[in-house]
Design a binder for these strands. Structure first.
Lengths: 189, 189
DNA sequence: GCGCGGATGTATCGCGCCGATATAGTGGTC
DNA sequence: GACCACTATATCGGCGCGATACATCCGCGC
């Protein structure tokens, strides 16, 4: 998942780890964070797999007076051809599709680069997963009736409300996917 | 976190792993799952720490005709005095309190056993965390204005809506904590 | 001209949890 | 009596997290 996100970002521009993490925060909207403890190992894995390479950094000016760059050590990574291929593969996949599958968010953050039919498949898969959870929560609330713990019930109700809203949100997105060009909203007559 | 939940469940009754997992699913309302790959190692850790012990299982009828129990092998666990103490400690703690901190849900599932002032502290801590995230999302949406990616924006907006609702939900809970006894709702005149 | 704090930047370690997988006894049914 | 779904325990590799460490760069006040 992290690797997916990294590839997606490096597709747009070469970057070093620190910058990558900041972008990750912006793009995934804080709905997903990723610590350095995940990031650096992930970068290493990607290098080992040949999906990215370390760019010899010339971002500052060259040494000029022998020994020492102007900028301090930073490792800039660039995506390879294999990496692009892999990213395309990952884009097409929709993953396990359980309601708490966080890869959905990453996918969506790269929707602009995703073919329309794949977008549709992912949105619908997500909707199915969220609807399943919604039904599970409804069943739990109904089944337990009055005997359920008050706080547990409260928790369930928040969850139910959240899933219901997400389904509605997904429906709107799907509807909009079906009728492209309405993005600016209908012109008021 | 899992250990916290396990201790809480074992406080109510001795149980074996499989049963424990089912209960976990019900109590945490699917908002948290826990796989066996987490559960069994956790049980082992708890045993090693002396917080729970394995009960010699007599849940089926005793052998009677020597050799072989009626029920198949199952390990029933029981909480120890140390375990109860530890659970009380964990109850009192409120944890890191970041918006994606899942321990809040576990805490709340055991609120009925939690002293009122601790409940309050945890609810307010949670509110603070969620409000922080809400502000972060608002800032991101405002800052980026129009130039932000359409889908990322959509994602942010869902997140914002979700956090706003959770804050309202928390406010209601907190209000109700302040005025206990109104649980059944006001009597309609 | 100096110290200081805060941002930049890379890296590692232990550990919790997950998903996949293996194994096997149990009970009902056609 | 074959089959299948459920009960039940267990392990393995791997991802991501939080804590921690260390070094540089830069503006600020003094």
């Amino acid at each position: 998942m992290l690797e997916f996100a990294i590839l997606g970002l490096l597709l747009e521009a070469p970057m070093h780890g620190y910058e990558l993490r900041k972008q990750l925060g912006l793009r995934l909207g804080g709905f997903r964070a990723f610590s350095y403890g995940s990031l650096y190992p992930a970068l290493r894995r990607l290098v080992r797999a040949g999906l990215i390479v370390e760019d010899p950094d010339r971002s500052g000016s060259p040494p000029a007076t022998g020994g020492g760059w102007s900028r301090r050590a930073r490792r800039v990574y660039r995506i390879t051809a294999d990496g692009k291929e892999r990213f395309a593969e990952l884009l097409a996949e929709s993953g396990p599709q359980t309601w708490d599958d966080e890869s959905f968010g990453v996918h969506m953050a790269f929707f602009s680069r995703t073919p329309a039919e794949t977008r549709m498949r992912i949105l619908e898969g997500r909707r199915r997963a969220v609807e399943e959870r919604r039904e599970g929560l409804r069943a739990a609330l109904a089944r337990a009736g009055e005997q359920i713990d008050r706080y547990t019930r409260e928790l369930h109700e928040l969850g139910l409300d959240t899933t219901e809203r997400e389904v509605r949100w997904l429906n709107e997105l799907i509807e909009r996917e079906r009728h492209p060009g309405d993005d600016a909203g209908p012109v008021r007559p």
